[in-house]
């Protein structure tokens, strides 16, 4: 069970099972047999494709980064244009949050190289980030449900 969770986590983060920050808990690290993932390996297949697309194996080239820069600029433009669409109303907020989250993840993962680096950086950074977000949400909730004493 623990191994399955670890495998999924590793694949999601894009790390192979035989490297980086890892406490060895078996005498030999055997490679994963072919079809040990759920749904007969489709998860692994799509993960592999994703990893290849995002250059998991090596460093990005300047051209790669330039493309990412264009993507970021495009998202910013979309945000700007959507801002003026009145008919969206309240839907604006989740859309903006999603778009910004995309920009955030792209900068963190690629520009800051978190995608390619040791998992410890991811843990250490997202501990702080997630905590900040959760606390902000709780604080807003507390103020939102505050009763008005008349």
């Amino acid at each position: 069970m623990k191994k399955l969770f670890r495998n999924i986590l590793n694949q999601f983060l894009g790390h192979t099972t035989d490297g980086y920050f890892r406490v060895p808990d078996t005498a030999q690290d055997l490679p994963n047999p072919k079809n040990d993932t759920p749904w007969a390996g489709t998860l692994k297949l799509s993960m592999d494709k994703f990893n290849k697309l995002t250059r998991k194996d090596g460093h990005g080239s300047p051209g790669f980064y330039a493309i990412i820069g264009i993507v970021l600029a495009a998202i910013t433009l979309v945000e700007f244009l959507i801002f003026y669409v009145e008919s969206l109303g309240v839907l604006l907020i989740p859309i903006m949050l999603v778009l910004s989250l995309m920009k955030f993840v792209i900068v963190v993962a690629f520009f800051m190289h978190l995608r390619f680096d040791n998992r410890v950086f991811t843990i250490v950074f997202f501990a702080g980030f997630v905590l900040a977000v959760v606390i902000a949400i709780i604080l807003l909730l507390v103020f939102a449900i505050k009763p008005v004493f008349s």
Binding site: V124, F125, F126, G128, F129, L131, A132, A136, L139
Partner: peptide, 21 residues
């Protein structure tokens, strides 16, 4: 540096939370 950045998230998070509240 990564630990510092995680910590700085709380710093800016506090200011942003105050703004939102």
């Amino acid at each position: 540096m990564w630990i510092f950045l995680g910590s700085d998230c709380l710093f800016f998070g506090s200011f942003i939370s105050t703004y939102l509240v």
